[in-house]
Write a protein that binds this DNA or RNA. Structure first.
Lengths: 220, 220, 220, 220
DNA sequence: AATGAATGAGGGTTCATTCAT
DNA sequence: CATGAATGAACCCTCATTCAT
């Protein structure tokens, strides 16, 4: 969570001797993944270098290779991290027994998907950077689709419950779930590539519209 | 397979006598752009090299730089080509006075967007490869958004006409157009990244569903 | 003397149709050598390209290779041209029976060496560009020294005549000639590299000083 | 031969075990500059390649760029090194309170300028290689003239002292200094380009002649 | 565990040269 | 004779990786 506070302790007792910091493995990995995300967002996946990432993380190149073995691996793990963060967030909401009202749960989902946390250009950039390469890299495809499939199933279940509850007829929950997921992806893309044309506000409004047309009783 | 016809004539009558062919500038440019598309689709934008592209085109590295000055420029022009091809195709259909029936025009649009020509993995790969970099490359953003804006306007106009014709109430044509565009983009993404989960057939069905819910009288 | 007049005839009778000009061999060679001199002066010997030279000459690359076979050869011939032009000018003055007065002949020589024609940055640049490479290129060394030796001999003869005429004692004409030549070369260098510190006027004054100290009766 | 001592230690104790040696930055820089000097002398400034220099230095290309960023910079720093070495040597002698006798100081200067250390073809080659490009490269001009100006001033001061001490009349110290500097440059040039015609011995004799004529009481 | 100097394969680009027109 | 599109070797430079410290 607190990803770059380690710099605070940097001011060593000794003058300003750049000291060798020894830290737990997990912390180092997280520190490097965070730096990688920032770098991808700032410079694009194809321009990211190990130097760049390690400087951003305040570590040495050697350390990155020590913890991740190779650049390829660091990139892969970064994708896995972003993918899991995003999908676990969704899934938690969808399963979320803490929000009994299904309509409200939908609202919460939408807020998560297009709200502050996720739509940060940073995360979106990373997201689409990997999509861009996915066509040519089975590894990326696998990571994304593994995590995607689960989220898709949960969404389908949620939609099915709503259909049942609302007694909506002529609605295929599975088809609708696919459509909704695609819509969200497309809106993310719009926010990233044409931010001038599509505000976050409008994106949310468009997504709500979609849900309202499908589940009028659940969405105001 | 061979969606790039110009490459076909390459196979010379003689064995593999590497002759120095002199050709018009436009042809060479097209030849190189086509090769670039194939390479991006096959290897990913970030792994494309000039060597790779020129070998694919059956030309020498020097020739590529002669006609495009730099790799950056070749990549930029390739994006421009793909973007224009896609959007001009859409626009022609949307304006298309050759299809007077608005519902049928919608169908034609959908067919174009998710049909054979566009959904080829090749073109999609290129498309998202650039999107992936767009966050960090204003030039790419500009090319895409310029061409995008026009298409968005035409779509809005088309939707507005349909709303008028059908007397649909409570429908905001602009919002709907944004949603539809996003949906299509999201479906493309799904076709590219999780082809196992989303067939082209289902993608089309999902998109039709969207339109049917909005314009029930126009879509069967 | 007037070395770049050939460009005048360029304005063709025809509109501005870039016509294929057919010209005598000697004219083409001269045209290309002139262009080479200008390019070396402007960009430095190491940055000169065939493209650059031929564009400057208003000809095509093919033509240059047609007349000179290779870049190396063009460069060599250009050096030979500049070297001969300079040394023949000197020699003509030194032998010059048209100036019977030996003191005046010395003056004329100095004027030629540090006057308008030769001290043009253009010629000097070329001169030293080749000197710079001479250490590593025997061919250049040979061209320069061949032509140099003759001029040195003539200068020695002239100095010897003056010594005889003036009855200067304790003066070694050969040594003095070497010194004078070196002085002139050094002044050229100063004019080229540190034009701020050494004006053409002062250069002449310094050279006259040298001669005056050696031959007080001949130089006022 | 080995005027660059630092290179001597290269021959490792072990056979040709190519070990990865880590060395202080200053040493690496010096090592590369020395190699650059040798390469320029051997092949000419325009033919020097990074490969060539680094092979000569026994290092990898990467290392050269690590310490100098670019070839341009390496070349620039090499010029600066040679220029400073030469001029600082002169200046030390001219200021040199360790040689109280002014005539002897002149002798020492001349010995330095035309003696073993400086007249080595190697250093001269470098010197004139840069002069050759100076016409087209302001950066080179600046480096040389900056360091030159100081030396010129010191020389003028020295000459003025001698004029005063010797009571020489009708001698302009400034003009004489310019002349002497030019003469030395010219002799260096002669030694480089026409070594057959001008021996080091004769060059020294010619320069002494110049000084003797100006300061007969100080030079025997 | 951590560092960063050193490496060198591989990238983009330039440009002398060739040759079909 | 003249042209300039085409070629590809060779350049400079970057950067993932290694390893002595």
């Amino acid at each position: 969570m607190t990803d770059v506070p380690s710099a605070a302790a940097e001011v060593s007792t000794d003058a300003n001797t750049k000291r060798r910091q020894i830290r737990p493995k997990a912390e180092r990995r997280r520190q490097l993944i965070d730096a990688t995300i920032r770098c991808i967002a700032r410079h694009g996946l194809s321009s990211v270098t190990m130097q760049m990432v390690t400087r951003e993380a305040g570590l040495s190149v050697g350390t990155a290779n020590l913890h991740f073995e190779s650049k390829d691996n660091l990139l892969r793990e970064t994708l896995r991290f972003v993918a899991e963060e995003y999908h676990h967030g969704q899934i938690k909401i969808m399963e979320g027994s803490d929000i009994p009202d299904l309509g409200k749960r939908l609202d919460a989902l939408l807020d998560f998907q297009l709200g502050r946390g996720v739509t940060q250009r940073q995360k979106m950039s990373v997201w689409f950077a990997y999509y861009g390469e996915a066509g040519a890299r089975p590894v990326y495809q696998k990571i994304v689709s593994t995590v995607d499939r689960l989220a898709a199933q949960k969404l389908e279940v949620l939609f099915a419950s709503i259909v049942l509850e609302g007694g909506y007829s002529g609605v295929n929950a599975r088809e609708l779930a696919t459509g909704y997921s695609a819509l969200i992806d497309g809106l993310h893309l719009g926010l990233l590539v044409t931010p001038r044309e599509l505000s976050k506000r409008r994106a949310r409004s468009v997504a709500r519209d979609f849900l309202r047309r499908a589940f009028p009783q659940h969405i105001s």
